[in-house]
Write a protein that binds this DNA or RNA. Sequence first.
DNA 1: AAGTCATTATTGTTCAACAATTATTTATTG
DNA 2: CAATAAATAATTGTTGAACAATAATGACTT
Lengths: 218, 218
Amino acid sequence: MKGKLGQQSLSQRVYQQIRELITEGELLPLQRLSEANLSEQLEVSRNTLREGFRLLTQEGLLVYQPHRGVCVACPQVQDIIDIYRVRRVIEIDAIKQSYPFHPALPTMRQAIQKALQLRHQSNWQGVGTANMEFHRALVSLSDSKRLQHLFYSIAAELRLAFNFLGSPERLHSPYIEKNDQLLMLLTAGKINQAVTLLHDYLVASERLLLTAYSQHTA
Amino acid sequence: MKGKLGQQSLSQRVYQQIRELITEGELLPLQRLSEANLSEQLEVSRNTLREGFRLLTQEGLLVYQPHRGVCVACPQVQDIIDIYRVRRVIEIDAIKQSYPFHPALPTMRQAIQKALQLRHQSNWQGVGTANMEFHRALVSLSDSKRLQHLFYSIAAELRLAFNFLGSPERLHSPYIEKNDQLLMLLTAGKINQAVTLLHDYLVASERLLLTAYSQHTA
DNA sequence: AAGTCATTATTGTTCAACAATTATTTATTG
DNA sequence: CAATAAATAATTGTTGAACAATAATGACTT
């Protein structure tokens, strides 16, 4: 019934669509996804939908329960801890590879501008997205396809965790200035200082999120 | 037509089966996988097979060409470089987390024993497998689900690269002793020395593989 | 209210079909 | 004969229906 124009396969599209629903907070943890419903809603067959499900399951955004279908993953405290551990490893390694005219630096600058603009409009969801774009650009300093891919994956999980908590502004907003500082250090080639800043930044961010989590649980 | 007993889904089984065919060297780079053929051979439907294909594609072991199907990935030199970059990041970080009675250490010991035994039987493919088991255990020192998963993935790619070259014994054999040294340093708590040893080990291994690659190309 | 059994809904998997695209063969022409 | 164009075959991309296996629901009994 579908004459396709776009290059990508349908299952790939489905994968991205659901992924976006999750990272944008339209789908929340523990929510079950019915194959019948979703396949009708996204206008694809169940088989195609299931291909997308598998991808998202492997990525950790969906959880599979045999014969009971999939539901949106619910990041546990230990996941937060693990994710930040990975972030420290990947991001710190990435900035160690930085050099003054790396093409990622302008991209980081753009992300900061975008975040500032969205904060001015009080679009906190957008600020969160821009912040993640900054860090994705940062990771691309590593020039490593595989490390970038892993970060792409955990960034989505992290987004899910933030949305879980209702993503209040205070969780993202103060970091824009930190990002700016960090970028300045990198453009100046002050790697060691940048490493320290980023490390502290990540530790603080983790603590904030864990605190919010414990309150949310209680 | 299938009454299933095993817990895992069929597509998961298919995923593992094909994965094994690749890591064990039965399927070589650039080989095209016909849906009709393979689905008959593995006794699953095309739809189920395709679910497995997608997983392997996301993992980088298969390459997808729209309307032309999938073929086994062919690791390029830049992939080798990237993989070793990731290995250094992950493995060195992992051993920094080591402590004397970490449960991963006995597993590493077992892998060494297994490798020695298989070397004695001149089973080089097996030695390669055991070597990878050693390093997988090493990475589990990190206690990070996500870093372990990434390593699981790149280990398979690496295996593919080795098989591509015909996996001559000299590529693996001399490393058993290095593994042993490394493990002794870890059990003794001499982390710094272990880091140095592992780093040099990985650099040397990368160089060896890249050299073999350039010869293979020529 | 707790436990058993029948009923219903959902997932797991297959199959057959057909549109869209690519590969191959045949025909045509210079 | 070589090169190219057209026709044909094969493969992938996607669907919808079917049915078995399992889980969820609800009625019934005590």
